[in-house]
């Protein structure tokens, strides 16, 4: 496993966690502009990091995020939950 893959996956996990936290806060505070600003920042960086990861190491989700090039890449391991474990 490449170091870069582990670092990108770790960043992806951090950003996804922060997105969920902000999502939960915004569910009860939909008008809060600061939280919304932070959520949008996290969502943007999350999309960028996901794109960078997928370009190099394949899909992070089986559907709904990216197309599969050349062959069905989802079965080419490791799956996201296997990265680093």
């Amino acid at each position: 496993m490449q170091n870069e893959q582990m670092e990108l996956m770790q960043r992806l996990r951090e950003l996804e966690f922060a997105a969920v936290e902000l999502n939960l806060f915004l569910d009860t505070h939909p008008e809060n502009q600061e939280a919304l600003r932070d959520f949008n920042r996290v969502a943007c960086e999350l999309a960028e990091v996901r794109q960078t990861y997928e370009n190099k190491f394949g899909p992070t989700m089986n559907f709904g995020v990216s197309t599969s090039k050349g062959r069905w890449q989802w079965i080419d391991g490791p799956w996201p939950w296997q990265v680093g474990y």
Partner: peptide, 20 residues
């Protein structure tokens, strides 16, 4: 009712289990 104040970074938040 929770107020939006300081929040931890994504990295810190994942370590601690919350960004709040």
């Amino acid at each position: 009712f929770q107020r939006y104040g300081q929040v931890w970074s994504p990295a810190e938040g994942l370590r601690r289990g919350t960004i709040f």
